[in-house]
Design a protein around this nucleic acid. Sequence first.
DNA 1: CTAGAGGTTGACGTTGCGTCAAGGTCAAGC
DNA 2: GCTTGACCTTGACGCAACGTCAACCTCTAG
Lengths: 248, 248
Amino acid sequence: MQWSIQDIARLSGTTSRTLRHYDDIGLLPPTSIGTNGYRYYDEAALTRLQRILMLRDLGLALPAIAEVLAGQTDDARALVAHLHWLEQERARVERQIASVTTTIRKMEGGEQLMAEEMLDGFDHTVYKDEVEERWGAEAYAKSDRWWRELGAEGQAAFKAEEAAISGGLAAAHAAGTPADNAEVQALIARHYAWVRAGWGGTAPSAEAYLGLGDMYVADPRFAKHYGGPDGAEYVREAMRVYAASELA
Amino acid sequence: MQWSIQDIARLSGTTSRTLRHYDDIGLLPPTSIGTNGYRYYDEAALTRLQRILMLRDLGLALPAIAEVLAGQTDDARALVAHLHWLEQERARVERQIASVTTTIRKMEGGEQLMAEEMLDGFDHTVYKDEVEERWGAEAYAKSDRWWRELGAEGQAAFKAEEAAISGGLAAAHAAGTPADNAEVQALIARHYAWVRAGWGGTAPSAEAYLGLGDMYVADPRFAKHYGGPDGAEYVREAMRVYAASELA
DNA sequence: CTAGAGGTTGACGTTGCGTCAAGGTCAAGC
DNA sequence: GCTTGACCTTGACGCAACGTCAACCTCTAG
């Protein structure tokens, strides 16, 4: 069985340009090339491509992937090395966050700005009453327990994930990106996963998820967090699209 | 008061290439340009440069810095925006760390490997953390690229050279040869050349080289490699002598 | 036969400079 | 006046991993 470049691009969820690039750098030459110059790939190539994409998604650089595929480097060893690099990256980013935060704090008006734009909306105990009212005291207790067990690092990651999502949504909204845009929906997918994590792993039903969207619009604290009423409505709309297509 | 490009490069701790680049992109045009085409800068330019470098160190992109300096964007607001971006970065890195860790754990032997933390004193990735911590992730990336480009043969030669040097030093230490002995110093000269090669040809300064010696003593992995704490101290002492006489 | 979908090979853009290359300028010593 | 060496200039490539035209050929269905 042979496939054209577009075929495997679709099968593997990448683009033909990427495949051409991989051919150029010798990472994935096509199985055969027609007299017309067309690239054709077989199952073996597809398998190889899938390994490449998996490693790429883990963040490995293409030359490192090439080594692993060539058998020069052991998979596990390459990943452990990569893990070290990632940890260094995290440390670097965290150091920068610390210095930027310090700098902002030292500037007049900076503290104010920071507080307005990001810090509130984040003490999870603020939501205690709403959670209990909507989903019961038991639900809150469970969520609270889960939160404490996360540990400082897990909590930071959880907050950071939310910051990333809402930041991305705010940018999309500002850019006028439609709510059903693929990237926006990818952010919503992350948001859904984030909410589910906050629910202790229980997947929210479409109804519950939509209710959350309504709350974002209705509650000024949430609305503000998503960049005002407009932003919150935008997020709700994106959540609606997601629920309709993914949670039906 | 006017300074040449090299002068302010030194005064501000950057390079003339960077200054030319800032001129090219209009971020920092020189105060005046001589009939010979030379760039000259005054105190105002120096001040502006220092603000640029401060913001750059906080991680802001050059166009963002340009906006701040042009007064188009408020400093605090730009930093808050940058903080958002940094948090997204952290979230991204944390997600990758999570998936890489999971992947390693699912592989046979992976867990083991991770636990061992790569004790083999000769996988060059062992040096990764030290390199990144002391000289930055970029320095490591460069070194890593160089390493891969060496090819299997070059890598073997590199390892062999190190083995020869450390073997020779261990023997000298065991024999009670003083650290300032000529043969020992010849070995250190080879060691220095070896380090420089690992640096992609950049000659380490006396300070950097001495820091490396300290690291050998402080880090048990290195110490072990040089035959325990005593051996590492011996090597450091020999490096000190070398630095004093050759790198002064 | 024609339209439209899909294929090809360039080649530029992205980020912030490092690193040659080829060649002019300037101050100092002979 | 000449040489030397330090310093200056303007290009231009390199890096990571493709996205995005551009210009042009090929295949397939109606």
